[in-house]
Amino acid sequence: MKWVSKDIETYSTAKEYVDTAVIPIYSVSFGNEMKQSASNAEFITLLTTYLERQFTGRLLLVPPFTYLKSDNQEDILQQLKKWEENIETSEFKHIFYITTEIDWKNFEKELTGSLIWLPSLPLEHLNDSQKISMVESQVKQLLSLFTQKWHENL
């Protein structure tokens, strides 16, 4: 389910079935790294949108967690932890973070949810159908990761 009023309405009537929250994470930077930052964001957005389509009925795609890359990492982590607390209290059993930032790997242990790190693929030179098949193959690998996690806590 997406973060739109119609989906949230469905969510509130079917809470017991939606137990997974997915949070895309990407940083924003200006100057020289602007383009890379945009490309990462584009990739993560496409990927999570497609993922949401596959698992509409079980996961809620939360708006992306964004931060300035130049900011203090400890502060950013505290911020994300606050998100985590809030999501956990609203009855989500599984939390997944999806990011292309390698820095998050260092903080993986401090987070309750599962962190999924993917290398960002440059999509700018691809046409639409190539983009789709590329993202699709990435998501396919994620799908099994999700189902595995669900099976663990049945």
Partner: peptide, 9 residues
């Protein structure tokens, strides 16, 4: 392919 339950694929 849209599941009639909650819309998964």
């Amino acid at each position: 392919p849209v599941c009639k339950h909650l819309g998964c694929t």
